[in-house]
């Protein structure tokens, strides 16, 4: 498996994501006690906590689809500090696939929206890697739950983002899929990428994590 995701131009720079004293709220109530995190390239952080502890809300806030009620985050980038969106990609519980578009069209849309227009061959190769080879022209709505997940994850291979923000990426994947994803994330980390994810029942990923964030009641 060759997963050369990283843009050679950015691979030299060291970037840091700082989350300090951050809290998210729901209905005016803080969901969890303040958390701190310093995530550098080459590191992985895993968020854990009981159901309803705000794992998804936290990830969405980090991704830019939500907000912190207290504290906040900063992105240290030597050239462009406001470039968090260009360096991160979020794959959430709602995967972002359009049911009536084919796998290829979905992937192409995500790629173009993120400014990395890829050739169809590259897109097909990415689909191949996630095990969707031959499904290029199938509608995303016809795929199984696991295949939909794979389609969403295939975006990561195309988009050349340093920070992967993944909400329960292992859910719905079969054993082979989990193994593949684990390898894929490890490879990404080893090549100077970073990941912030939730994975409630994956021991391996917890063991590999550089940072464990446990969300507790405030």
């Amino acid at each position: 498996m060759s997963l050369n995701n990283l843009n050679p131009h950015t691979s030299l720079q060291s970037t840091i994501l700082h989350i300090s004293h951050a809290q998210c709220q729901k209905g005016g109530e803080p969901l969890f006690a303040p958390i701190n995190l310093r995530l550098e390239r080459g590191e992985m952080a895993v968020i854990s906590g009981r159901n309803g502890s705000g794992k998804t809300t936290l990830l969405e806030a980090v991704a830019g689809l939500g907000s912190f009620c207290e504290g906040g985050m900063e992105f240290d980038h030597p050239d462009s500090p406001d470039s968090w969106l260009q360096h991160s990609h979020y794959v959430g519980h709602f995967l972002g696939n359009k049911a009536s578009l084919t796998c290829l069209e979905n992937l192409n849309f995500a790629a173009t929206m993120n400014g990395s227009s890829s050739h169809e061959n590259q897109l097909s190769a990415a689909l191949d890697q996630v095990g969707l080879g031959g499904y290029e022209y199938h509608h995303a709505g016809d795929l199984s739950a696991g295949q939909k997940k794979r389609l969403a994850l295939s975006r990561l291979l195309i988009l050349n983002k340093t920070y992967w923000l993944l909400d329960e990426p292992f859910v719905n994947l079969d054993v082979a899929g989990c193994d593949w994803l684990f390898e894929c994330i490890s490879h990404h980390i080893n090549n100077g990428g970073a990941a912030l994810l939730t994975a409630h029942d994956n021991k391996r990923i917890h063991e590999k994590a550089d940072h464990l964030i446990h969300l507790e009641r405030p």
């Binding site: 991704a63 830019g64 689809l65 969106l85 260009q86 979020y90 959430g92 519980h93 709602f94 995967l95 972002g96 696939n97 359009k98 049911a99 849309f109 995500a110 929206m113 993120n114 400014g115």
Partner: peptide, 15 residues
């Protein structure tokens, strides 16, 4: 778009 998550793809796209 909100329900299938694809809203995030363009909200976070920098557009």
């Amino acid at each position: 778009d909100y329900e299938d998550g694809s809203l995030g793809l363009y909200v976070l796209s920098g557009l």
